[in-house]
Simulated scan of single mutants.
Amino acid sequence: MELEVRHLRALCAIADTGSVRKAARQLGMTQPSLTTQLRRIESALGGQLFSRERTGSRPTPLGRTVLCRARPLVAEMNTLVAETQAAVVRAAGPHLRIGGTASRAMAGWVSRVHARLPDADTTIRVDVSANALLQMVALNQLDVAFVHEVEGAPLRIPDGLERRVLVAREPQFIALHAHHPAARQSVVPLSDVAGDRWMVDPSVDGEWDGVQRALRASGFTPRVAYGDYLTAADMVAAGEAVAPCQPTSQPRHGMAIRPLRGDPIAVELFMASRALPEGTAGEVGTAEVDALYADLVAAYREAAAAATTYRQWLARNNRPLLYVDEDELSRTAGCA
């Protein structure tokens, strides 16, 4: 077996994420495929590159030696790809690459961009992993990404990225069966759902850490089921689980959405972009990034206004519809 750049990139991803599962998600592979590839690489090199521990995968001494040589090669290849892509973009005309974790604001954001720039070729990437999206921005595979950072579970933010904070602390609500006893209350104490089975998607960066942290801080040991949030919605509607959800979420039939008392689970919402001087060749400049942020602000306001439970929470807590820096908002709106 001859080593290729994709093999080196896989080794770097495993080392950076500390997990074969997370690395597979970042690389767009299945975990079994990446595990098989890693075994073949180790067989070709004649030694174990990672030790498999309960907490994840850690480089062995041989692995650290290989990584020291692999990282510069991968970086050079990434630069080559980024420069080539930039040249293609310049030749093809206006082009925007937008990424985001799942959000009710995404559709409105993209619609506003299309209305403002009808001739631009816009590509959209939605991923459960905020870390993967941030890495794509850093590698010039995306121009901007709208992501969330779970409180107490910091993201790995690559060097050279700028953050425009949309909401400093967005409370996460709870989705539960419409006839759950706790659903009779307008605000649910965590203790009333702590004994339920909580369904979370382990591939969403920081999601389970945030839930677990909040429950354990209240003295509860959670019961958990793992799965994607489409399955979670079915489980909640069937009365088999509860699940954390965004406050902009809309309840489906058989489901109720309620805020948690004291907002023990929260996220920061921000848009990330590369730090670039205006007019950098082949890049989306500062003025356009500001305009994209203004579009996102408007889309989030619209999604928040459409969510009855969130509107009620905002009124009850004397919060404006969107609590960003109003001076910053007026500046970015002027660039739109």
Rank of each mutant, 00 (worst) to 15 (best):
S218K: 09
Y310W: 07
D290M: 08
P320Q: 05
Y229M: 14
G334Q: 07
A178R: 10
A303I: 04
S129F: 09
A87Q: 15
E4N: 06
C335A: 09
N318G: 01
A336Q: 13
W313S: 01
A153W: 00
G160H: 03
V284I: 12
C68K: 11
L269G: 09
D121V: 04
D196G: 03
V200M: 10
G46M: 06
M106K: 01
W313R: 02
T280S: 04
L133H: 11
R301A: 05
R39V: 03
A275K: 07
V242M: 05
R21C: 06
P244Q: 13
T79S: 11
W313L: 01
A87Y: 08
D295H: 10
S191Y: 00
E151V: 04
A298G: 06
G254N: 14
V324T: 14
A307I: 02
R104P: 09
Q246L: 15
A10V: 07
I265V: 15
D16K: 10
L34P: 13
S111P: 02
A87G: 12
R54G: 12
R311C: 04
I41V: 14
D159F: 03
E326D: 12
K22P: 01
V110L: 14
A70W: 04
G108W: 03
G47K: 02
L34H: 15
Y229N: 13
L176T: 04
G254K: 14
R216M: 05
L292T: 04
L269Y: 05
R71T: 04
E278V: 01
L276I: 02
T248Q: 12
G56N: 05
P251H: 08
L276F: 03
R116H: 15
V5K: 02
V5S: 07
L215R: 06
D192I: 02
D196R: 03
A294P: 09
T308D: 06
A24G: 13
H177W: 12
Q312M: 01
D228K: 11
G239Q: 08
L215P: 05
P118K: 11
Y300M: 07
A70E: 08
A225K: 13
R261E: 15
L134K: 08
Q246Y: 12
S273H: 13
V200D: 07
R90C: 13
Q26F: 09
L161E: 03
A138T: 07
S129L: 11
T280R: 07
A120E: 12
S273C: 12
A107S: 12
R316L: 00
G282E: 04
A178H: 09
G47H: 03
Q246K: 12
P202V: 02
M136L: 06
R58A: 11
P59N: 09
R301I: 01
Q250M: 07
P259Q: 13
Q141G: 13
L67M: 07
V165Y: 00
L38T: 01
M106H: 11
R316M: 02
L329S: 08
P244W: 08
T35Y: 11
H95W: 05
T309Q: 02
L73K: 03
E4Y: 02
V5E: 10
G47F: 00
E207C: 15
E53Q: 13
P171A: 00
L73A: 05
V66L: 09
A299E: 06
A241M: 06
G219W: 05
D16W: 06
N131M: 08
